[in-house]
Every structure is written in structure tokens, then in C-alpha cells.
């Protein structure tokens, strides 16, 4: 910026200051507008809609307060949906993050055909979820699907993976982990390769074992990466929908119905706008609480990166 003109005229001075103060706002205006139109407005609108009954029986919106929420919390199917979602989150997040770290540590060694291994583990990420789900649908086919052929080799009886309520959610969890682990592995690999060499040299000179240097150096130094991939894994888990649509339709008997799929079904199959809006609000609230907690935790704790 040029130097301020030294002029005694205070009116010009003030106008200039207001202009300068407005500049940052003007600069973020396009983004703000975008966020407001595509994020804030829909969020507020969906909350507003969630306060109204609007479904097949009530075509014109009718104010009901928190009636839609009350109906949801009394609905045994919705309880099942919440339980399924929680199980899915607590199974896929730690397992895929842990496996990603293990794979990254292994593939950070000097191996033959290293690129091939990395590609093999990363490739599920490139596939669209719909294609992956279709492939796994074949693999889970009772009788002659690949998964059953594989377990029969170990003399385990062939299973109807997607048709058994005790196995269907596990089948989806396995697919979920397979799909995203390679993606997280890449972040860990990047993290590992960015680690300073000298610290590890110093540690080994001081007689630290491999386990000790992993425990006290590698893992803490990768904490930032862990936080990042955990966040993505949690959001992924809550946004699980494609594979349910393709593979189970939420069945058998709601055993694989999760929040986003239930939301889709309530809106587009049951045409229940009020209840679907209430589910959206719950989903937004859960993700918002998680993100804010995560953010505050990171801010407080700081990061090594």
C-alpha cells in the first residue's frame, strides 16, 4: 500500500479508513456468499422444516414443534439406526487408522517392488464407492462368492454375508475399512517421510530400542496426521450410504440401516419431509459437535507439525 497522503482534511481521512476496513470483508464476500447460500441457509432451512409435519398424510406443512424429533426417538427402527451407526463408527475408525499406520510403517521400509505394494493398497481409494460396492456384492454372494470360496478353503462353512443380520453390518465394516485404509496410509507415509532423521539417529545413539523410538518419537510426531485421518474417518463413517443402497437396502430387517441411508429413505422413499429434516438436523448436530470438539482439542493441545 502507498503511504498515506498527509492532508489536514479529516473527512477524507475517515472515509479512507472506512474504505480500508471494508476491503477484507469485500474480499471474503464471494466465499461468504457461497457458504451462506449453500451451507448456512440450507442448515437453517432444514431446522425450520424439522419443526413442521409434512408427509403423505399432511401435505401442507403443519407446525408441530419438536414432534418429529419425539416421533424419531420413539421409533424402534431409528434406535436400531443409531446403534448401527455407532457400531460402524467405533469399528471402522480405529481399525482403519491403525491398519493404515501399520501399512505405512511397513511400506516405509526399503522393499522390492515398493511402488507395486503402495499402489495395491491405495487402489481401493480410486474406485468410486458404487463400483466397489458392486464388486463386494459379488464377492459376498452366498455359495460361489470369492469371500466364501476363501473361507471354505479353511473349512469354514459358507456364509450368507449380506443375508444374515449378524454378519451384514460386519460385511459392510470390512468393505469400509478396505476402501479407506489405503487413503489414510498415504497420509501416514507422507508424515513418516517428513520426520527429521537426526532425532532418530540421536535416539539410537542413546540406545533406544525400535519399540521405544516408535513409542516416544514416531507416534507423537505423527499425532497431527492421526488427528486428521481420524476426523476424515469419522465423517466417512457418518456419511456411509452408497454401499448400503447397493448391497443391502438397509436390511435384513434394518440390520445395516445407518443415519444417512435412513435419511435418504425417509425423504425419498417415504416422502416424509418433516422427519427427514429432523434426521438431517441430528446428523448436522453430531458432526458439528465432533468437529468443534476436535478443533478445540487440537487448539489446546497443539501439534508437532
Amino acid at each position: 500500500m502507498r503511504l498515506r497522503p498527509r492532508t489536514p482534511d479529516t473527512r477524507t481521512e475517515r472515509r479512507f479508513r472506512i474504505g480500508a476496513a471494508a476491503l477484507p470483508y469485500l474480499l471474503i464476500a464471494p466465499t461468504l456468499l457461497f457458504v451462506a447460500v449453500f451451507t448456512l441457509f440450507p442448515a437453517i432451512r432444514v431446522f425450520y422444516d424439522s419443526l413442521f409435519l409434512q408427509n403423505q398424510a399432511v401435505q401442507e406443512p403443519q407446525f408441530t414443534g419438536f414432534g418429529n424429533y419425539a416421533a424419531l426417538f420413539q421409533d424402534p427402527t431409528f434406535h436400531q439406526v443409531i446403534i448401527n451407526t455407532v457400531i460402524y463408527v467405533f469399528a471402522t475408525v480405529p481399525l482403519s487408522v491403525f491398519l493404515a499406520l501399520v501399512l505405512a510403517l511397513l511400506l516405509n521400509q526399503k522393499l522390492r517392488a515398493l511402488g507395486l505394494y503402495r499402489l495395491a493398497f491405495f487402489y481401493p481409494t480410486i474406485l468410486p464407492m458404487v463400483s466397489a460396492a458392486t464388486i463386494w456384492l459379488f464377492m459376498y454372494t452366498p455359495g460361489y462368492g470369492l469371500v466364501n470360496v476363501f473361507i471354505e478353503f479353511f473349512h469354514i462353512q459358507s456364509q450368507n454375508w449380506l443375508g444374515d443380520p449378524n454378519l451384514a453390518l460386519i460385511a459392510l465394516i470390512i468393505l469400509g475399512i478396505w476402501k479407506q485404509t489405503g487413503y489414510f496410509m498415504i497420509f501416514y507415509l507422507a508424515g513418516l517421510q517428513g520426520l527429521p532423521h537426526d532425532i532418530f539417529e540421536a535416539a539410537s545413539l542413546d540406545g533406544a530400542s525400535a519399540i521405544q523410538s516408535a513409542r516416544y518419537l514416531t507416534f507423537p510426531l505423527l499425532a497431527g496426521t492421526t488427528l486428521f485421518v481420524t476426523t476424515i474417518a469419522v465423517v466417512n463413517a457418518f456419511e456411509t450410504v452408497d454401499q448400503i443402497y447397493i448391497m443391502t437396502g438397509g436390511g435384513p430387517n434394518n440390520a445395516t440401516s445407518m443415519l444417512l441411508f435412513n435419511l435418504w429413505q425417509t425423504l425419498f422413499s417415504f416422502l416424509d419431509n418433516g422427519k427427514a429434516s429432523a434426521i438431517s438436523v441430528i446428523l448436522i448436530a453430531v458432526l458439528l459437535i465432533f468437529t468443534v470438539t476436535n478443533f478445540l482439542y487440537t487448539e489446546r493441545r497443539g501439534s508437532y507439525e
Binding site: T141, P142, N160, L162, G163
Partner: peptide, 9 residues
């Protein structure tokens, strides 16, 4: 077979 069988299969 036991369990839920799929229409497409």
C-alpha cells in the same frame, strides 16, 4: 439356503 436371499441372484 438360510438368511435373506437376493432377488438379483
Amino acid at each position: 439356503p438360510t438368511g435373506i436371499l437376493q432377488w438379483a441372484n
